[in-house]
Structure formats: structure tokens, C-alpha cells
Design a protein around this nucleic acid. Structure first.
Lengths: 373, 373
DNA sequence: CTCGTCATTGCATACGGATGCAATCGTGGC
DNA sequence: GCCACGATTGCATCCGTATGCAATGACGAG
């Protein structure tokens, strides 16, 4: 048996001609090379870059300095393979017409980055094969999964996709509560809106929902209806916009406004509410809030625009993100971790769409001071 | 269990924030195990999952079936290490107040996913050490980088971060043009707005910019000013909002409106324009477009809301994304690829903020048919 | 019936770093 | 001056796949 180890560098010869250049680019320096150049072991290099390992401060410094000089950076892929930790969080999102979510995702991604997790986006599109898209989540071995997709995914899919890793559902739940979720307290919010309508003397109220089968929609709707009944108000309409869009809000508002027996409407989110607001004012010539009061949910930027000055229930975005990140960290470190549901308190923001000019004072520029960013 | 090693800890708080904790979870099945169970070689398993490899259809089927049964999926991390291809694109973003960008990023990420690239988000925050944040880009060995961050990053940083990999700058350029960029044709857009103002009889026009030193702002401003001069119109103001925000537009509009000698304003993006619109109407009681015409840039959703019906220059988002993705694919396959600048044509959308009710007919619902999505 | 060819499949090793364990070095105690 | 012990450092091996090359098998030509 011939053991021609080493020796012939490559099948160079003539068939070196490879027209296509599919594989690599200029190779970055590796830990081994750095080590060889410095006359130390590759282990030393590895340890120099790993906090809490056994290595003398001097050697570590020497290595770090040399690394900086030679532009060496540990290859994260290789680390992942040996440590079985990717330091990557998968963020599962789907179509978002609601500007609330891009904002949330950006902040979330920033926070995750701060604790050492990069965010890998997984866009789930309604049409295509969902299970198949989730396979990627598992293949990439992400340490954690944050699901910010209200729809599309079933509980079963989610359980499968997140099996064996840290996971948090944001603003959605699954019926059996086997997964940890963090959300705005929809019940609190919807009740607050109902209470507010009552407090300003409205008695004929309506609800306009968004995507029918989402937990956000159902929770807000049920809580609102319940509270409205408790307060002895009349529920004139319960509509579903079918989606969380401006047009859906506009359409629903036309229907409500034309019936002329409603004096306050709670839209399940701000975009719906803004569409409704425009329909009442421009489409039907009603006065807001005199003829009809309008409230939304989320507190997106636009609610603060003077045209709308929309009363809304602010989702505690920062708290949601903070809790999400800390729950993930906890799951990553605790062997035993049991799923929990985490509704977080929001805040009712009363603006001109429910309380006329007398009740609040417009300040020169669009934003009342306490709401300035 | 870990017995906290009293690590001397480099208090050198290079806050290498790493979520700590026991790495592993329940181990998924590997190719080797699958192979052993089936009595074939690990290579066979690998080949079964790699298109275009030498393996009989029968064996491939047998393996794929068994894999499905045992819930085996090739570990992407390990593949990356072997192939030196991560199939990941890094998307570099920074603070975005402009809703145009989240939308773009979502679509971009979806398209990249369609061609087999997952998107890893890199949020660059203005405050912190930028170079340090870019290191991650290199450590993760992303195959490609898409920069959608108008600001913050210098050309030098970008060149370093993207060195040796496919890269595309979206809606920004760097002076020396050593990197490929794809953007909306700002010059075309700004000229179109100027022409439009001229066509509707305006002669006293103003420009309101956003972030002063961004290429988008500079290009739009210069092209507008030039064209205005060519057409013999008077440029009454050239303001910089300082940022692309509603408030900045509002403020600038107050200043312009109070001077009472301007009859058309081009805002460098839609958010500025909407702020300006509200300032003119609510803040100053002017009529739009009768007293003053307002135009924006981007064509975000809100421009179509009936309240605003904002004339704007539509960025060819789909074309931008398509070109970006194809340029990336090209760079990934071509050894020699030279950077190019790719301005793409947009489209002037004339709406009511420049042409009164006579000129356009409002259709029942908010969106004129040809603009329905 | 024998040999060459092509199609499959297995074997061995590389990818770049992490880490258990052994080897080495420096020190203080006796 | 000798030995034990803790602090460092190096060695060898593993993480899970991909892939060049050799081995095996099937099949048609001569």
C-alpha cells in the first residue's frame, strides 16, 4: 500500500484551468498561521480570544496585538462548529403592513446584538411552503428564535421550529401555552380604551378588528366587548377589517359612520384608526372627536402627527424587547426553564381624537412636550 | 455543572457580551449517524443532499426518505466551514426614521432568501465604535454585504468591511466609486419635480433637505437647484432639515410659509414633505396646492392617504432590489467583477398636493385605481 | 471470456477553532 | 538544594460536512 501522504501540492499540472470561480476569495489568516508566525500554539491563539480561559495576560496581549496587526479575526463559523453555539438569533417575521413591527424588529435586533447575538432574519411568506422555510431555522442552528409574526405559523410549526432552543413569541401566543410569549397586555389596553370612552361620555361604541384570527385581535376584541357591556354602553358594530391596513379602517369607518348611531370607535391598531379617522373626516364630513371619537392601538409615530393626534394605547416596546432578550438569555443559561406568558403593561395616551381642543392644549409644534422623543 | 472558575478575568471589559451558559441542547442526528444506521457512507448522505453530485437516484431517494423519517437536516454551520460559503448576506443598516427603508429591507431579505441567501442584520449605531461593529461582518464570513445605511459609515470602513466579498451599496455611494452601488436616480427625480413645478406654473420654489451630507440629499439638492436655474425659476430657500423627519419638515415649512414668497416646495423625502404639508395647512392655514405646492420623494404608503395625496417621485424599489440581488449573484460567480454605479429610473407620481381637485379626480376610496397595489 | 470504461460508492482528510489532558515552568516550603 | 503544586502552554482530537481519489461493480466491445 502506497502512502503518498503530503508531497504533491495539488493536481496542478494542466487542469488547473478552472474558468468559473465559484468557491473562495482571498483567504483570511487563520489561528494556526498566526500561531506559527508567532511561535506559539494555535490553542494559545484561541485562548487569547476567549475570555475566562487559562492564559497569561502577557501572552494574551502579545497575541491580540499581533492579531490586530495581521488583521486576524477568529472565524465565527468554525467557533460555532466546535462550541455548538452560533450566537445567532433567528427572527421570524412575515408580511408586515403595520409600521409598528419594523420598528420593533430594528430595536430588537439592536438589543440582541448588544448581548452578543446577531439576528438572522427569516421571512415567512404566506404563499409558499412554510414548513420548508422553517427548516432553515434548524439547519442554521440558531441559539434562539424570536417570532414576531402574528400570523401564518401554526402552534405546531412553531413548536417544531423552536424545539430544543430558546424561543420567545412576541405579541402572539399559541393556545396551549407551551412556548414563552411576551406581549403587550391587550386586555388592559382594550379595557382602558373602553373606560376612556365611557369617561368622556360616549355610550354608542364600535370595534374594528384587524386580522381575524390573531391573538392580538381576539384579545383586544373580547376585552373591549366585555368591558363595554360591564359599563352599560351599547356596542353598535363589531367589524373585522380583515387586515391591519389603512384601507380596511377606511372602509369600516364608512360603514359605521353612515349608520349614524356610533359616537366612539376603537380600532384594533393605529393604521386602521388613521384610515378610519380620514374616512370620518374627509369621507363623511364628520367632526372628530365631536361627532365621533377615534382610538387606536400601538402608538406608532404617525399618531402624534397633529392632523391625527390619535388617542391610542401605547405598547411598551422597550419593555417588550427587554423582557424578550432577558427571557432568551435565561433560557440559554438555565437547563430547566418553563414557558411563561408575559403580558406587559402599556399606557393610554389621550390625544385630540377623543378629547377636543378644550381638553388638551395644542402646543406650537406637533408634539406635546412630554411626548417628545 | 460549571463551578465558576475564578477566572482572573480580564477586567479589560471588552464587554464581549456573550450569553453564557451550557452550550448544548439535545443533539440532532448527524450525517454519520444516519449513514451508519442505513449502512452507507457519510459521503453518500452528503451527496444525497447536494445537487449535481455523483450519486445514483435510487440511493439518493433512499437516503432522503430515511432522512425525512429521522428528521435529519444537514448542519449548515458545518457546510459553511467546509465549503467556505455561508449562504448568508449581511445587511448593514443604521437608524431609520424613514419608513421607506424597513419596507425595502424586508423585501430585500425576502428576495435574497429566494436565491438562497439568509440575511444577517447588522445594526450600526451612531454612538458606539463603528469599526468594532463591522468586525462581526468579517467574523461571520458572510458571502455578501448589502449596505442600506445612508450614513454613519465612511467609505474606508465600507471598503474594509466588504473586502473580498460581494457587496452592494443601496441608495448611497462613496466618492471614489470603488464599490458597486444601486440607487434611485436622484438626478432624474429632482429634475422631474422641478419640471413639474414649472409645468404647473410655479416660479418661486424652495428645497428642503434631510441629512446634510448623505449622497441622496446632495444629489437631489444639486439636481433640483440646477434644473430650477435652467428653467428660470427663483429659488427662494434651500434649507436643511438636519434629518429626514416629520418635525424637520414641519419646521422648515413654517419658515418658508411665513416668508410668503414661495409657491412650491420640494422636500427631499416624503416624511419631510408630510411634515411640511401639515405645517402649511394646520400651522399656517395655507391651501395646498393652491397657495403652495408640495412634493416629496420615495412614495411611501402614506403619500397615498387622501389627506395628503402627495405628489412624489417613486423610487423603483422592486427594480432596486432585483438589481441588487443580481449584482450580488454576479459577484459571487465572477472572479473578475468591476464595481459599477447603477442609478435606476423612478417615476413621477402627480397627486393633489401639487395639482388641485380639478386636475385629478378623487375616486371613492383613497387610491386612484392605477395605483392600487 | 477478458479488458476497458463509466457510474457509484467508500475512504481519508480538510475546513478553523475549542478544549481535555499532559508537559513544562516557576516558586515557595522544608 | 530538592520536591510539590499551581499557573501556563502545547498536543491531539473533535465538531459535522464536503470532496479528491481510489475501489468496486456493471456492461459492452473485441
Amino acid at each position: 500500500m502506497v502512502v503518498t501522504s503530503g508531497h504533491t501540492v495539488a493536481g496542478d499540472d494542466m487542469d488547473d484551468a478552472n474558468p468559473v470561480g465559484p468557491p473562495p476569495k482571498r483567504k483570511p489568516i487563520t489561528a494556526r498561521e498566526l500561531a506559527r508566525l508567532m511561535g506559539v500554539s494555535q490553542s494559545a491563539v484561541s485562548r487569547a480570544f476567549t475570555p475566562g480561559t487559562s492564559i497569561s495576560p502577557q501572552l494574551r496581549q502579545r497575541i491580540l496585538r499581533a492579531a490586530a496587526e495581521l488583521d486576524y479575526h477568529p472565524n465565527a463559523i468554525a467557533s460555532m462548529l466546535s462550541t455548538r453555539r452560533s450566537n445567532i438569533a433567528g427572527i421570524v417575521v412575515s408580511e408586515m403592513q403595520n409600521p409598528f413591527y419594523p420598528t420593533l424588529i430594528e430595536k430588537l435586533s439592536r438589543e440582541l446584538q448588544r448581548v452578543g447575538l446577531q439576528s438572522l432574519m427569516f421571512n415567512i411568506t404566506r404563499g409558499s411552503n412554510i414548513e420548508e422555510q422553517l427548516v432553515a431555522l434548524r439547519k442554521y442552528n440558531v441559539d434562539a428564535v424570536v417570532v414576531v409574526s402574528a400570523t401564518v405559523l401554526s402552534g405546531a410549526s412553531l413548536r417544531w421550529a423552536t424545539e430544543g432552543r430558546a424561543a420567545v413569541l412576541v405579541n402572539r401566543t399559541i393556545p396551549d401555552q407551551t412556548l414563552t410569549s411576551v406581549s403587550c397586555d391587550n386586555v388592559e389596553g382594550a379595557r382602558a380604551i373602553a373606560d376612556h370612552f365611557h369617561a368622556i361620555g360616549r355610550r354608542q361604541v364600535a370595534y374594528v378588528g384587524g386580522l381575524p384570527h390573531t391573538s392580538t385581535n381576539l384579545e383586544r376584541q373580547n376585552a373591549f366587548i366585555t368591558r363595554v357591556a360591564e359599563l352599560g354602553m351599547t356596542l353598535t358594530h363589531t367589524l373585522s377589517g380583515g387586515e391591519y391596513s389603512y384601507e380596511a379602517g377606511y372602509r369600516a369607518a364608512l360603514e359605521i359612520g353612515q349608520a349614524k348611531r356610533t359616537d366612539a370607535v376603537f380600532f384594533a391598531n393605529d393604521i386602521l384608526a388613521i384610515g378610519g379617522f380620514d374616512a370620518f373626516k374627509d369621507g363623511l364630513g364628520l367632526l372628530v372627536p365631536e361627532d365621533i371619537a377615534v382610538a387606536g392601538f400601538d402608538d406608532v409615530d404617525m399618531t402624534r402627527w397633529p392632523r391625527y393626534s390619535l388617542t391610542t394605547f401605547r405598547q411598551p416596546v422597550d419593555a417588550i424587547i427587554e423582557r424578550t432578550v432577558s427571557l432568551i438569555i435565561e433560557q440559554l443559561s438555565n437547563e430547566d426553564f418553563s414557558p411563561s406568558q408575559n403580558p406587559l403593561s402599556g399606557e393610554l395616551l389621550i390625544r385630540h381624537s377623543t378629547v377636543g381642543g378644550r381638553g388638551l392644549e395644542k402646543i406650537g409644534l406637533p408634539l406635546p412636550p412630554q411626548e417628545q422623543r
